[in-house]
Design a protein around this nucleic acid. Structure first.
Length: 448
DNA sequence: TTGACTCAACATCCTTTGCTACAA
DNA sequence: TTGTAGGTTTCCATGTTGAGTCA
């Protein structure tokens, strides 16, 4: 009896009598065997290896028959070519790690053209949905489908948000031969990883500037998309394809009043740790404290105190004074200011008359501000985390990080905002402001 | 079509003191 | 002996996004 493979609700249905394979399970309800859709390529390999004949109906007729005959006019830069080759050598699977501004999109376009198969591109934001849509349309001269932002139109090349892909993967999972995950580190999220599980696409490409995740979930991404096959850092490309840069680390003192508030709050936190048998041996022990805070008022008070201490050290007055000096020094430059708190964003915006972009800024207003930043009407902009990722931010040459998390990813993304090569060949500059003798010194050390 | 709202999901959040098991 | 990695799980707060609903 011949084996027949087909796609059904995010799984591969295997009718007939398949050999025992570790990822194939019996499905008593349908009387057939099933494998998770993402194992499609493995399944075919295993059957081929055993010389088992099978009728493959997994990819919908459109996807299976399609030779889109795509061509790209892009001339790949040497590192882009190497990345694409490494990905192809790994059986059209794997993650490519390239810094912001180095042209990750171009590599994906190269892959799409090379495979000429129906392609799904998954992106985290609507902004990126639009950008990819425009770029693919211009490059291939074909209509580009969209899942997300109020549209649900499928084409042979379709761009989707992670959220819409999550909602539709079990239904359209058999329609694409190639899937590209932009900012693929998001795929490690508990829910999003199901997207990759429900798609049958044998060819998979992940793109990111920061592959590794502090919670280790990049291992899951490796399983679902493939291992990291190529990596170039900002340092590798600085001076040639990206701007050279300097990082200036500036320490500021807390005022007496801030110091008192900081010590009081931080003391409350540390005291609780000392008296409650909570040890911080590894990062996730913080979760233990959070859990306790649900039932233990003292734990809750300790966390709130920690929150207050963080606010004091991150938003200290002397950082604002220091920013004033920096802005003065860089009158003729294009400056992006980053903070960790929206309150501070608005304070800075009022005091220095800088346009602010936060999550509360409406989409049209945000477009307006960024467009004026692009054409030079505005030379400065201040934001919390909105501009870190997934937004097309016009190039700047000076970044000021007033405060941030210990996340290496956040830091890399912020640095990436100033790394596009400068017309005059000038260097980019990132200022990092840190309150002396506070936990912020550790935080800053951790992110690098 | 728009704008406002709600909701769910994701990400970060972190410190000293030395437990325990195991590998080099 | 010395050095290093190990195991556990649902939520204090803030910032951000996309989807969905309704006027």
């Amino acid at each position: 009896m011949t084996i027949t493979l087909s796609f059904e609700d995010g799984t591969i249905r295997i009718a007939g009598d398949p050999p025992a394979l570790p990822f194939v399970e019996d499905d008593p309800r349908s009387g057939t065997a099933r494998a998770p859709a993402h194992r499609y390529a493995d399944l075919r390999d295993a059957l081929d290896e055993r010389g088992v004949a099978y009728d493959d109906r997994v990819l919908s007729s459109a996807a299976a028959a399609a030779d889109l005959d795509l061509e790209t006019t892009y001339e790949l830069r040497p590192y882009q070519r190497e990345a694409l080759d490494a990905w192809r050598d790994n059986g059209d699977r794997g993650v490519i790690e390239l810094p912001t501004g180095s042209g990750k999109t171009v590599v994906a376009i190269g892959a799409t053209a090379a495979l000429s198969t129906p392609t799904l591109v998954v992106v985290p934001t609507i902004d990126l949905l639009d950008q990819w849509g425009r770029e693919l349309e211009a490059e291939f001269g074909a209509p580009i489908g969209r899942f997300g932002g109020g549209e649900q139109r499928q084409e042979r090349i379709t761009v989707s948000t992670y959220d819409s892909a999550y909602l539709r993967a079990d239904e359209v999972g058999g329609d694409f031969g190639l899937v590209v995950f932009d900012e693929v580190h998001h795929l490690g999220g508990e829910g999003y990883r199901d997207i990759a599980r429900l798609l049958a696409a044998p060819a998979r490409m992940g793109l990111t500037a920061t592959f590794e995740r502090p919670d280790g979930a990049h291992e899951v991404v490796s399983e679902l998309v493939g291992p990291r096959v190529y990596r170039a850092s900002a340092d590798d490309l600085a001076g040639t394809h990206l701007a050279d840069y300097d990082i200036k680390h500036i320490e500021v003192e807390l005022t007496d009043e801030e110091r008192a508030r900081y010590e009081e709050a931080q003391g409350t936190f540390v005291d609780y740790l000392r008296t409650s048998n909570i040890t911080f041996r590894s990062g996730s022990d913080y979760q233990e404290l959070v859990k306790r805070s649900g039932t233990d008022p003292r734990a809750r008070e300790a966390l709130l105190a920690k929150q207050r201490a963080r606010e004091v050290m991150m938003n200290s007055d002397n950082k604002v004074s220091e920013l004033e000096r920096i802005l003065d020094r860089h009158r003729d430059d294009r400056v992006i200011v980053f903070t960790a708190h929206t309150d501070l964003v608005y304070r800075l915006s009022e005091r220095f008359l800088i346009p602010a972009v936060t999550n509360e800024t409406s989409a049209p207003e945000r477009r307006e501000i960024l467009s004026r930043f692009r054409d030079g009407t505005y030379s400065r902009v201040v934001s919390a985390n909105v501009l870190d990722e997934g937004v097309d931010v016009p190039d700047a040459n000076v970044a000021v990080v007033l405060s941030g998390s210990g996340s290496e990813r956040e830091f890399t993304q912020r640095l990436g905002r100033v790394l596009r090569p400068k017309d005059d060949g000038g260097r980019a500059l990132l200022y990092e402001l840190v309150s002396r003798e506070t936990a912020e010194e550790r935080v800053a050390a951790r992110r690098r």
